[in-house]
Structure formats: structure tokens, C-alpha cells
Design a protein around this nucleic acid. Sequence first.
DNA 1: GCGGCGGGTGATTTGAAAATCACCCGCTTT
DNA 2: AAAGCGGGTGATTTTCAAATCACCCGCCGC
Lengths: 212, 212
Amino acid sequence: MNKPVRLMVVDDHALFRRGLISLLEEMPNLQVVGEATNGKEALGVFEKQRPDLILLDINMPVMNGIETLTAIRKLNPDQKVLMLTISQNDEDLIGAIVAGANGYLLKNTEPDVLHSTLVQAMAGNSVLSPEVTSRVLQAVRRSQADRNRSILSDREIDVLKCLARGQTTSQIAGVLFISENTVKTHIRHILEKLEVNNRAEAVARASQLELI
Amino acid sequence: MNKPVRLMVVDDHALFRRGLISLLEEMPNLQVVGEATNGKEALGVFEKQRPDLILLDINMPVMNGIETLTAIRKLNPDQKVLMLTISQNDEDLIGAIVAGANGYLLKNTEPDVLHSTLVQAMAGNSVLSPEVTSRVLQAVRRSQADRNRSILSDREIDVLKCLARGQTTSQIAGVLFISENTVKTHIRHILEKLEVNNRAEAVARASQLELI
DNA sequence: GCGGCGGGTGATTTGAAAATCACCCGCTTT
DNA sequence: AAAGCGGGTGATTTTCAAATCACCCGCCGC
């Protein structure tokens, strides 16, 4: 028979923390072995109890959850930590992920869902509340868009837009007030950077990358 | 009483597809209204049936899942599409996310979990298989690390590492074979880029960003 | 008062990417 | 045969960030 999962709960709101602990202790295979009201206190309790899994709020006085996570990571890089917060802002979310959180749960999580989520986390998976998953995917999209946008220079984008309108080298030169040879050089660089072989492919590729 | 969710399943493997459909039709509040073996065929079925939710494989002949998703997005930007695949490689995962997938599920998903996941998706949330969540978080970390790494030049990092060792401007100049004034200029730029006011803050910030 | 230190302003040089242009060739159409 | 077009090679200039350095000032300790 497996030993129960040893949990630690860190939250500055006493009613929430105590209520959560009460719920957790009613759940099968879970045992709350420690609690703390802020990050500083959490580090002490952590050193003493060495729990299997930590539920960690973000907005706390003295030392916030992300700073606490960073400190815990230094003490034990493999420690499982799930953020449990009301915050859905990107700075907190990305900050927690980058700091190495194994999960990010919102406080609107239903108790039975929390239980299965803890089981998932103990099984080695990262876990997110549904709304958080959506935000993370948005962040991935933005990041990729930024990266794509830096492939071509502004001038190259200008030329590409003209190509997309079906304009010839000569017409593009007229539109942009540069010589045909300059347009051709820009096109050459565009083909190189997008790793394509001709103008049509370049336009398709740029469209795919949402550059035009 | 709510109408059942109208699903469409796209997968080139007949046994998997038919088996999945059989499972789905036994689940409450779900109705499979269409199926296809590749992306091209899927577009035709999609136009005809206009399902509420599409389960879409990635590796398919004729037109892969990501290309199909992109085409479907053009037809209906709000269409809910979940990838259902065995692929865990980052290119497929990021490609699907960027193309606008509402979720990315692996074929090792248990049927009951699949059902609740479909309910989540219909409720407006993005959904990921547990293993995929971990990969996405890793991708976010890498992306952020890349972004951080580009803040400072190599030389500035050299100077910062010396600062972290507690070296003075004069000592750093000796170590790097440059003049004190050059060191000071690098430090000025470091303070500007990290948006801090002095060396100690710079070292703390850089450590936080994992630049040193 | 001087030396050592950090913080500040300003300047010059360097290197690489961006932006520019000339010229050549093959293919297609007129 | 000539014109128009796309694709190719090569060159020069411009721009900007990186890297370099000089000089000044205030504070602190000796």
C-alpha cells in the first residue's frame, strides 16, 4: 500500500489555508504535513518537513510565491510545487513557469478536480487549470509571432507585400521609389531567409507565418 | 435538455477512427456527425456538417492536420478543433498551437478522460494531455530564456560575471584586458538594459534572469 | 588632501546587417 | 530579334549596435 502524499500548503489567508487543509485531509492518500503564511516561513517549514508536494500561493507578504519557489528550487531542484492562486495575469503565470512551477492552479478549482490534479502532479505531469491552459497557449502564440516577425526587415516586408499583390519587380521599384536591382536584392534576401525557391513560395510562406 | 455535441473525427487509420467513433457514440451527449481519412476530405465533410468540435489527427497523407486546421480556421475562426495524435515532437505541438488548435490530446488518453476533456473544450477552455502540458511549459521556459539571453551582449555578460564575483572596475579591466573606462561604459549599458540603479541590483537581476 | 571607488556624460572606432545599385543569363511572349 | 520578366552574382554605401576610451564628480577612508 502506498504511503499518503505529504503536502504542504502556503497561503497568507488563514481561512482559505485552514479550509483547504481540512478538505485535503478528507481526501484519500493525502496528508498535510505543514503549512505557512508567507514565503519566508514556508522555507523553514519546508526544510523541516520536506513534503512531497507544495501548494503555493503567489500574492503573499514578506516573500511572494515566485520568490519562494525560486528559493525552494535552489534547495531541491526536483521538488514538486504547484502554484495555487487567483492571479491570472501573464506576468505571474510566466514568472511561475519560468521559475519552474510544476503546475498552476486557480482557486476556483473544484475539490474533486484538485484531488485528481494532485495525483497527476505526483505522477510526474505538469498541471494547469483550464483557463490557465488557454492563457499559456496564447503566450506561446505571441512568442512565436514575435520570433517570426524578426525574420525579415521592414523593407523586406514592404517588398513582400507588393509581391503578394502580384506586382512585378519593375512595379515594386516604382511603388517604393528604389531601383529594380534593389528590389531584386531584397527578394533574394527574402528567399534566403524564408528558405524558399521563388516568389510564389515566399508569399505562401510569409502568409503562413502571418508576416503579411 | 441540451443538444448533444456534434463531433467530427479525422484520422487516416480506419480501425482507430472507427473504434474511436464507436467509443464516442456510447458517451452521453456526444454525436459523431462526420468522419474523414485525410485533411482534404475533412474540409468537404466540415463544410457539409459544420460540427461543434473536430478531433483531428496530425500525421495524415494528402493534407496533414496542421494544414487542415489552418484551412478550417479560414472557413470559421471560432471552430473548436482538438488535435488527437501520437506525436509529441515540439514542431507538431507548436505548429498546432500557432495554427490555433483549442487543444492537443495524445492517443493514450483514457476514454473517460477524453469525455471530460471534450466537455471542457466545449465549455471554452483549451485542453492538453498531461504530458503535453509539460512540454508546453518547457517550450515557454526555453522561449523566455532565449528572450532573456538576447538582452545583453556577450561582452556585457563577461563584465557582469566579474561584478558577480565582487570584482572592482579596475580588477575587471585587468581580467578582460580593457580599460576601466570601457568597463564603466559596459556597466552603464548593463544598468540601462536591466533597468536597475546599481551594480548589486544588476547582479541580482541577472541572476534572476539566469544570465549568470 | 589624496587615493580608491562607483556613477555619470560624451566621443570615436569597428563590424555587421540593412539598403542600395550594376550587370548577366535564360525563358517566354510579341 | 527584341522586350519583359524572374533569378542570379557581385559591389558599395549607410546605419546602428557593440566595443572601445577619455574625462569629470561625489563619497569615503586613510
